[in-house]
Structures are given as structure tokens and as C-alpha cells.
Design a protein around this nucleic acid. Structure first.
Length: 431
RNA sequence: GGAGGGAUGGCCGAGUGGCUUAAGGCGGCGGUCUUGAAAACCGUUGACCGAGAGGUCCGGGGGUUCGAAUCCCUCUCCCUCCGCCA
């Protein structure tokens, strides 16, 4: 959420930056509401003060036996009390209106973010690794997986419908190995604390990270309850310190967690209908950092590098993209996407998204810290990134490490997690 | 699911309508003493809105009252016992 005070005093600048993100808003209305809010508050504050002072006099008058005076004062204060109540009602209405307007505004982009209306304006930062060259036509992962009998979409559909998958045997084992591998790297080498959070969260948590109120249709909600399936571990991890004032010495905080993620994928009809790319449920290992207000952009570089490590170890070619103002998510001030090479599509596809949200989520979730020594609490900065989306990693391995005979080589870094297995092959019949 | 008991500042905890400007303790910070430290003693100690005056905040929301931490309604969470259960 943007700071109402800042918006009110920087109308033109904020409007321009929002427009770069593709959002048109009437900020003048917001400013008017803020002015009215301040006026009302001052008036209420003064009236309440007078009322309190006068009110104390009643007890005294009764004690002195001046009943008539006490009664008339009481009647007067009764009217005054009603008047204050009316002002308070208006204040609440004004505050609610301002809140409603400001909470659906996206974050402002950092100055280093390329300006543009969509992904065509994204900027390639670097490429790492070389796409493999094959002596045969590389197959898409769903063909490889089904031939190896480790992936089954048909039976998954029987259980849950389209956009669900059933991993079998070594397929399931590979998924589990990837999760374990990623968590080990981040906890043992990158200093993240492993968490295993709830997979269901309430609306307050989703408001904190920005999924609500604007993007409810992207979520799966539990019937009749204020609970939603997590769309990403970013939600529980970032909200862990909601409503807290942290000590500066505790920062930065680095958490990692594996969770399944659930997305309704409303509005994505016809996109990526085949294969594992776009599912209602997928596994992800997430990284979250909570920092002070000064170091979040350095932390974004670190976090992105941490995510890249996984791709490098798994020998998967990828590139790093700086998203443009029009392609970034709602809460982000700056985002790097990691895109992995997919031979069957002959292109790079997103496998991780690493964002610095600045104080945008911290303001919503009330995550603050006390600067070194003393002083007023300040808003933290929050960051998150996938490291990585496990399902997409699974399919990237299938496609990049496939052989002409339909088998798939296991990257060396992963072998310790698969009892030393070097390749996944079609099982010899009967075994 | 049933029955009871709770939720007060960073933490513990007192407080049943005006004398609460939330007691007291712990912790933190500053000081005295000390070569230094500990102990002891003294002082200090929150968040939010507002330019300020001032106001708000005792789990959340609503109500009664001139006046609510205190009374009423409601929701959430926690604890104890019973039932069920991996």
C-alpha cells in the first residue's frame, strides 16, 4: 500500500508513476478525502477534549448537591456527545473511502525499472549457460514423462480435473529430491531459516502481501470460512512478523519454505494447456527477506543470485530479465524474472520471480523495526523470490537433459538425493 | 462437538462506572558507587493521528452512559476438563 500522506503531497509524480504501470486514477479525490480527514480529526479532537473536561464537572456538582446544575449540564453534554458521534461517523466513512481507493493502487516502480506497457519492454540483464544442441528433435516434457511412466495427466483429471498432475514413481521421487536439494542449498549455504508454514491463510495475511482485496478471483477459498489455499509461500512467510516491531539488530531476516501453491488460473484459458507449466497446484521453494529501509536493493541482488544458484547447479541454461513497469506484479517495486531454456518451445520461460516490495507490503502488514539505538519505528522492506518453482524445474530437467532414447540424465548435484541415480530410463518390463 | 476460565504496555501482572494521567514487578536505557564489572540505590521507559493544541489505543467489532479497561451484545484466539481423532 502506498503512503496516503506521500500520495497527497506528490499528486503529479504519483499519477505519472502509476500511469507507467498502466493504472489511471483520480488522485485528486484521494487528496480531498485526506484533507477532510485531517479537518475532521482536528475538530473531533478539540470537541472531545472539551467534553471530557466538562464531563468531570458533573460528578463534582452532584457531590456539592447542586442537582439542577448537574442535570442541565448533563443534558447539554448529551447533545454534544451526539454531535461528536456524528462527526466520528463521518470520519470513519472518509477514512474507509480513502482506504478503499488507496489499497487497490499498485506499488510505485523503482527508478531503475525499465518503463513499458508489457513484457516486450523487459530488459535482459544476463544469460547463463548455453541451450543444449540435440542431434534429434527434442520432445516436450509431457511426452517424455508419460513415456517414462512417471507423469499421468489423464488419471489426475479423473481425480481433480484439468490443470492437475499425478507424478508417479521416479517422477514423484524427483520432485521430492528437488525440494530437498533446494532447501538444503538455501539453509546450509545461503543462511535462510527453514519454515514449514500453514498452507491455508486468512484474509488478513492475504491483504498484507497484496493478493486481497484486488485479486480474490485468483485464489481458492475454503467454503464458509475466512481461509484460502496459499497461492505462494510468500504470503505466510512475509506475514510472520505482521504487527510486530523488530529490533534493527534482528535484520535482515531470511526465511525459506517449501509449500504447495494453489492458483485458480482464472483468465488463463487456452494458455499453456499442455504439460506442467500452468497448474492449479504446484510445488515451490520460496525465499523471503525482511530488511531495513536502506539495504533492500542490495538484498534483491543477493536473493536473485541465491535463486540462480539452483539453476546453475542443475545445469539449466537461463537468463535474467528486469521486468518493465507494465509487467511487474501489484506489490513489487522491482522484479527480476529468471527464465529457463525450454528446448521443446525453443524459448526461455519463467521459472522464478524475485521482487523487492519496498515498504509496500510492510505498510499493509505493519511490519516495522526500531532503528539502531532509539527513535521512531520505521517500516521494513520485504522481498520474495521463487527458488525455484519445483514443477517447472522438474520439466526443465526433463527437456534439457533428455536423450535420444527417451531417457533423462540426472544432474550431478541431484544424484545424492536419488541414491546416486544417473539417469531416468523406461523401466524394463516386468521389473 | 459439550462445559468452564481467560485475553491489559517489550514481558509478567493489578485494576467491577469519575480520584487511571493504567499500580507494581521484570527487562531495556541513563546515572550514583566501583580500577572495571556485578549487586544495591536513583531516574527513565509504548504505538497511532495531528503543523500544533490535543486526541485515539486495555484481543476485534458494535452498544449503554454526561463519563467505560470496568456494564451489555457479538466475533476471534488461548487455557482446563469431557467427547472424537492422525
Amino acid at each position: 500500500m502506498l503512503d496516503l500522506k506521500y500520495v497527497s503531497s506528490h499528486l503529479d509524480e504519483v499519477a505519472k508513476k502509476l500511469q507507467e504501470r498502466g493504472t489511471q486514477v483520480d488522485l485528486a479525490g484521494l487528496q480531498a478525502l485526506n484533507e477532510r480527514r485531517k479537518t475532521l480529526q482536528t475538530e473531533i479532537s478539540t470537541k472531545r477534549h472539551d467534553h471530557q473536561v466538562a464531563s468531570k464537572g458533573i460528578g463534582a456538582l452532584f457531590k456539592e448537591g447542586k442537582k439542577d446544575e448537574a442535570e442541565s449540564l448533563r443534558a447539554e453534554l448529551r447533545r454534544e456527545s451526539d454531535a461528536i458521534k456524528a462527526l466520528e461517523d463521518e470520519l470513519k466513512k472518509v477514512e474507509d473511502q480513502a482506504q478503499e481507493l488507496i489499497q487497490i493502487l499498485p506499488n510505485l516502480a523503482h527508478e531503475s525499472v525499465p518503463i513499458g506497457s508489457d513484457e516486450s519492454a523487459n530488459e535482459e540483464i544476463r544469460r547463463v549457460g548455453t541451450p543444449p544442441s540435440f542431434t534429434f528433435t527434442p520432445k516436450p516434457h509431457w511426452e517424455i514423462g508419460e513415456a517414462l511412466d512417471i507423469l499421468d495427466f489423464e488419471r489426475a483429471a479423473r481425480l481433480a480435473g484439468a490443470r492437475f498432475a499425478l507424478l508417479k514413481g521416479l517422477g514423484a521421487r524427483l520432485e521430492r529430491a528437488l525440494i530437498q536439494f533446494m532447501l538444503d542449498v538455501h539453509t546450509k549455504e545461503h543462511g535462510y531459516v527453514e519454515m514449514l508454514p500453514p498452507f491455508l491463510v486468512n484474509s488478513a495475511a492475504l491483504f498484507g502481501t497484496g493478493q486481497l482485496p484486488k485479486f480474490e478471483e485468483d485464489l481458492f477459498r475454503i467454503r464458509e470460512r475466512d481461509l484460502y489455499l496459499v497461492p505462494t509461500a510468500e504470503v505466510p512467510l512475509t506475514n510472520i512478523h505482521g504487527d510486530e516491531i523488530l529490533e534493527a539488530s534482528e535484520l535482515p531476516i531470511s526465511y525459506t519454505a517449501y509449500t504447495p501453491c494453489f492458483r485458480s488460473e482464472a483468465g488463463s484459458y487456452g494458455k499453456d494447456v499442455r504439460g506442467l507449466i500452468r497448474q492449479h497446484q504446484f510445488d515451490k521453494v520460496e525465499l523471503v527477506k525482511i530488511t531495513d529501509a536502506e539495504s533492500s536493493y542490495d538484498a534483491l541482488e543477493t536473493l536473485t543470485a541465491n535463486a540462480e544458484t539452483i539453476l546453475q547447479r542443475l545445469e539449466l541454461p537461463y537468463r535474467v530479465m528486469a521486468l518493465s513497469t507494465g509487467d511487474m506484479g501489484f506489490s513489487a517495486a522491482k522484479t527480476y524474472d529468471l527464465e529457463v531454456w525450454l528446448p521443446s518451445q525453443d524459448q526461455y520461460r519463467e521459472i522464478s520471480s524475485c521482487s523487492n516490495c519496498g515498504d509496500f507490503q510492510a505498510r499493509r502488514a505493519k511490519i516495522r523495526y526500531r532503528p539502531e539505538g532509539k527513535g521512531k519505528p520505521r517500516l521494513c522492506h520485504t522481498l520474495n523470490g521463487s527458488a525455484l518453482a519445483v514443477g517447472r524445474t522438474w520439466l526443465a530437467i526433463m527437456e534439457n537433459h533428455q536423450n535420444a532414447d527417451g531417457s533423462v540424465n540426472v544432474p550431478e548435484a541431484l544424484r545424492p538425493y536419488l541414491d546416486g541415480l544417473e539417469r531416468i530410463s523406461t523401466p524394463v518390463s516386468g521389473s
